[in-house]
Simulated scan of single mutants.
Amino acid sequence: MAAADFLVVISDVLLRWLIMYFPVSFLDITYVCSLVTVLIPATTMNSVWLTVAFTFDRFVAICCQKFKSRYCTEKTAAIIIGTVSVMSYLESMPWFFKFESKYIFNNLPWFCITKPVYYTSIYWTLFGVFHRLLSPTLPCIFILLLNTLTIRYVFVVSKARKRLQKDSDREKTSDPEMDKRRKSIILLFAISGSFIILWSPYMACFLYQRIALLHGYSPLSRTAGTIAYLLQLLSTCTNTCIYTVIQRQFREQLKTVMKLPFTRMLRSIKQ
């Protein structure tokens, strides 16, 4: 997930703005800027669907104890990561054919301009709808559904555990298992909430632009579109931070990495 989010930063932030602010570079070659246009949605979709896959993994680990031993393995994780990554890039390949060159210089096509057929072809329209359905409409639905089922399961198990404790006259003692499940609920609410909140402005702007084109409404302001776009980019890293920072093993390894230079320095001094 961290690697996928880092690729989003490279493609959707660095390369996009390099093309805009440093004109007439190798990035303006038609083949190169078309490839960048493929990488931008591909990396974003890969990041989004890896979040969905990880959410499903947590759902299985918490709610499906019998299936957990078979599914929650390193081999399954590698297969899921590879499949999601490959499918994300294959799905975005048609964007490469969206552009044509503005002019040819020394037998090399330069700059990317949208083909006129893109605005009139029913196939491009259907592909655009399909692409928006895959990112982020279906991921939002899956994340909400899985988190709802997980939270429901945790609440049911917690109530049963409280009844058992009450019957055993131990209701006043602390329960580490219930505290752990309570933290899991907070984590799931944070994940689903951040994902939906940060993607909602982007989807609202996209829908308004489509409706405005059909009915001749005034276009959306550039400021609103920019803010929605920035929030959408922010969503690619929030889930990774939430998932990793709250993990005890990750915090311990992070502390080890931060202490490593000082530890080696003290070791050298002692030697």
Rank of each mutant, 00 (worst) to 15 (best):
A3I: 07
S11K: 02
D12K: 01
L14N: 04
R16S: 08
M20C: 04
V24N: 14
L27E: 01
Y31N: 05
V32Y: 05
V32N: 08
C33W: 03
S34T: 01
V38M: 08
A42K: 04
T44V: 07
M45Y: 01
V48D: 03
W49Y: 05
L50V: 04
F56G: 09
K66H: 14
K68H: 15
Y71Q: 00
T73P: 09
T76A: 08
I80S: 08
I81V: 08
I81C: 06
G82S: 12
V86M: 06
Y89V: 02
E91I: 08
E91M: 12
W95L: 14
F96C: 04
F96H: 02
F96Q: 02
F99D: 07
S101M: 05
K102I: 01
Y103P: 01
F105L: 07
F105T: 00
K115P: 05
I122P: 02
L126D: 10
S135T: 13
P139M: 09
P139L: 08
P139N: 07
F142A: 14
L145A: 13
L146G: 02
T150A: 03
F155I: 11
S158F: 08
K162G: 02
K166C: 09
S168M: 10
E171S: 13
S174E: 13
R181W: 15
I186L: 10
I186D: 08
L187K: 15
L188E: 03
F189M: 07
A190Y: 00
I191S: 08
F195N: 11
I197F: 15
W199M: 10
Y202H: 10
M203F: 07
M203R: 02
C205H: 07
F206S: 11
L207T: 07
Q209W: 01
I211C: 07
L214M: 13
L214Y: 06
S218E: 15
L220R: 12
S221F: 05
T223K: 13
I227R: 09
A228G: 10
L230I: 14
L234I: 11
T236P: 01
Y243A: 10
Y243C: 06
Y243F: 15
T244A: 14
Q247V: 04
R248Q: 09
M258G: 00
F262I: 05
T263L: 11
K270R: 15
